[in-house]
């Protein structure tokens, strides 16, 4: 190889090192910024990702129901491991797993978690379905789930840009 090439290679190594570092730093900056936006969405918009609402009342008591947003699937219980954490109702950690399919709620009781429908003599075992508006009893709580209103707009078309640049 020529002497000119060697000189250029030695000079440009500083440029290439800077470019490599710049790529990493720019990517890190983008990640931190996007991560903060995503965290704010999760924290401030309680309807984010929600497809339904779970209303919770102390069983057999009157009063205002506590409402919790439901994503398509998750766990409900009294502990920190649960997606929907309901304190003070005697619920296990987790008490039951759920999945929203079409218009019903599929409930799978967790180990030690008793879930029953009103009128049941014993706790349900295995996965069972609950329709909208039906009540279920878990721990000391009575729960009822409602689906959110149908979406006003159709899903975005495949070639639609959903991102905007800052």
């Amino acid at each position: 190889m020529s002497h000119t090439y060697q000189v250029w290679a030695l000079v440009l190594r500083y440029v290439l090192a800077a470019l490599g570092l710049a790529v990493a730093l720019r990517a890190l900056y983008m990640t931190v910024r996007d991560g903060r936006s995503a965290a704010r969405i999760r924290a401030t918009h309680n309807s984010y990702g929600a497809v339904g609402v779970l209303s919770v009342l102390p069983a057999g008591k009157l009063g205002k129901a506590q409402k919790y947003s439901l994503a398509r699937s998750g766990s409900v219980g009294g502990g920190s491991k649960c997606d929907v954490r309901i304190k003070g109702m005697g619920l296990k950690n987790p008490h039951f797993e759920y999945e929203i399919t079409r218009r019903t709620l599929q409930i799978t009781p967790a180990s030690g978690g008793d879930v029953r429908m009103p009128g049941d003599k014993s706790a349900r075992a295995g996965t069972f379905s609950v329709a909208q508006g039906q009540h279920i009893l878990a721990g000391r709580a009575e729960m009822c789930f409602q689906l959110s209103k149908p979406r006003a707009a159709a899903r975005s078309p495949l070639n639609k840009r959903v991102y905007r640049e800052k």
Binding site: R26, Y29, M30, R33, D34, S37, A38, R40, I41, H45, V162, Y163, R164, E165, K166
Partner: peptide, 9 residues
């Protein structure tokens, strides 16, 4: 919040 950081740079 849906805006993503510009990837052009």
């Amino acid at each position: 919040l849906l805006y993503r950081t510009n990837e052009q740079p």
